[in-house]
């Protein structure tokens, strides 16, 4: 009786061990064999998060497995990127990265504590490019950089940003330094909260994506001041808004969102994911979403993304 029990017990153990999730994917040609998770390291409901969740719904069609979108928040993306170092090559978890993580954060104050580097990741495809905009509390009547400079002569400028070591925070710092104004960056946990702070008059200014500010601009609560690009924009909502390039400043760059995997991943795996997402980006529903979010399709590959990172790093280092 006891012997039978022992045998059954060990049989159960062996069978159940078979169910245990080990990561021994030896056959690369069969990748992916189970669901893929894409981690967005930024705010829930933000532009990257919405893009992630929407594109993930088409994943099964092109990759043959479900693609799950998830978030991992903290320190403007640093927490998720640091935790990602625990992943191995050919992992089923992918992550987003951008110039904020690789060009700005390591090169600003506190950067020595960063535990990851660009080389720990392999870029697969950039999902979009977007332009940041600075908006102001509409009661201040600030519509361009000249108004801003005038305001800044008598007031210490408070700018609400989504994390002090982020891509947008650097843009704010560089602009203020170029204008020779005194400022403080006030960190919030998400662009929506930063915009709300500006709308309430708590800080006078905020930096965000255009679509995030759209609601407040439309309602007349915030006014756009400047775009962080060469030529500005002129759309229905953002009428005749100049770009920092037009004032002769060089510190601007587009915001990107690159889908990445862990270093050492087999090139065929990278190719598979890239091709799948290229197809997804062609879908009309995705194009509509991008129009609504005021972002552009810009499927940079690894080389192009590295160039982008290097150029932003150069901008950051030169302004130090």
């Amino acid at each position: 009786m006891k012997k039978v029990l022992c045998v059954v017990f060990f049989a159960l153990l062996t069978i159940s061990s078979a169910f245990s999730g080990g990561s021994n994917e030896a056959d690369i040609s069969k990748w992916p064999e189970r669901e893929i998770t894409v981690i967005c390291p930024w705010a829930v409901g933000g532009v990257a998060d919405v893009v992630n969740r929407t594109l993930a719904t088409y994943g099964q069609e092109y990759l043959g497995v479900p693609v799950l979108a998830t978030n991992e928040l903290g320190a403007g993306g640093n927490v998720a990127l640091t935790n990602y170092l625990k992943q191995g090559p050919n992992t089923y978890e992918l992550i987003f990265g951008n110039e904020g993580c690789f060009s700005v954060t390591p090169n600003v104050a506190g950067g020595e504590a960063i535990q990851f580097t660009y080389d720990d990741f392999v870029p697969i495809i950039n999902l979009y490019s977007a332009i940041f905009v600075m908006t102001a509390d509409s009661t201040l009547g600030i519509n361009d950089l000249d108004d801003l400079k005038e305001y800044g002569q008598n007031n210490r400028i408070k700018i609400a940003v989504n994390g002090v070591a982020s891509a947008e925070a650097f843009l704010a710092m560089a602009l203020m330094d170029n204008l020779g104004l005194e400022y403080d960056l006030v960190s919030y946990n998400g662009a929506n909260l930063a915009l709300d702070a500006a709308a309430k008059g708590e800080t006078a200014f905020a930096i965000s994506h255009q679509s995030q500010a759209a609601g407040n601009v439309e309602a007349g609560v915030l006014t756009p001041v400047v775009m962080f690009n060469e030529d500005g924009v002129d759309t229905e909502l953002f009428k005749d808004v100049k770009g920092v390039g037009e004032y002769g400043f060089a510190e601007f760059y587009p915001n990107t969102c690159c889908l990445m995997t862990r270093k050492g991943t087999d090139p065929s795996v990278v190719e598979k994911i890239r091709n799948a997402y290229l197809e997804i980006l062609k879908k009309p529903e995705v194009k509509d979403l991008y129009d609504e979010l005021m972002i552009e399709i810009n499927p940079m590959d690894a080389e192009e993304f590295k160039e982008h990172i290097d150029s932003v790093t150069a901008i950051v280092l030169s302004s130090k």
Binding site: F9, L13, S16, F19, S20, G22
Partner: peptide, 13 residues
């Protein structure tokens, strides 16, 4: 080492 289900069975017993 032995996975969730197996270790849960061991613990449970």
């Amino acid at each position: 080492p032995i996975g969730f289900i197996a270790s849960s069975i061991v613990f449970g017993i």
